[in-house]
Design a protein around this nucleic acid. Structure first.
Length: 118
DNA sequence: ATGACTGCGGCGT
DNA sequence: ACGCCGCAGTCAT
């Protein structure tokens, strides 16, 4: 059963479609963030050209291709961790593993770790 | 078509 | 610190 709502989403998958889905834009940009760096929902939104910060988070959550797309490198703009499909603790684990310093559910070296899309 | 709820932010208080 | 509202997308009604 296809709803009106899902139709626009599917339109992005069929051939001949010129527009890139919101989600794809997020993933494409995110793939630029290197190991040991983090970006924010806001920064992603800014780079895309939207103010829909929440939609960015949803895109991350829906994806689940955690290997190819490093969703764990996206945190809140105030340095707090934010959410993760597999749980925040798992997210922190991954970040620490990459050299990000996390303390009390916050990135303590946020300014240095922050990756900007210029 | 409408309303509720998001891995959020900004602004006012 | 708290509450409100805006934003884009998804889901249920």
């Amino acid at each position: 059963m296809l709803t009106l709502q899902t139709r626009s989403c599917l339109n992005n998958l069929v051939s001949g479609n010129t527009s890139v889905s919101f989600d794809e834009k997020c993933y494409k940009l995110l793939s630029r963030v290197p190991r040991g760096k983090v970006t924010t929902y806001k920064e992603l939104a800014r780079a895309i050209g939207t103010k829909a910060y929440r939609a960015v988070g949803q895109a991350m959550n829906r994806n689940q291709k955690l290997i190819s797309i490093p969703c764990h490198r996206v945190v809140k703009s105030n340095g707090e961790i934010g959410g993760y499909a597999l749980g925040v603790d798992r997210k922190i684990e991954l970040l620490v593993n990459e050299g990000i310093q996390v303390r009390l559910y916050k990135v303590s070296n946020f300014p240095q770790a922050f990756f900007r899309f210029d």
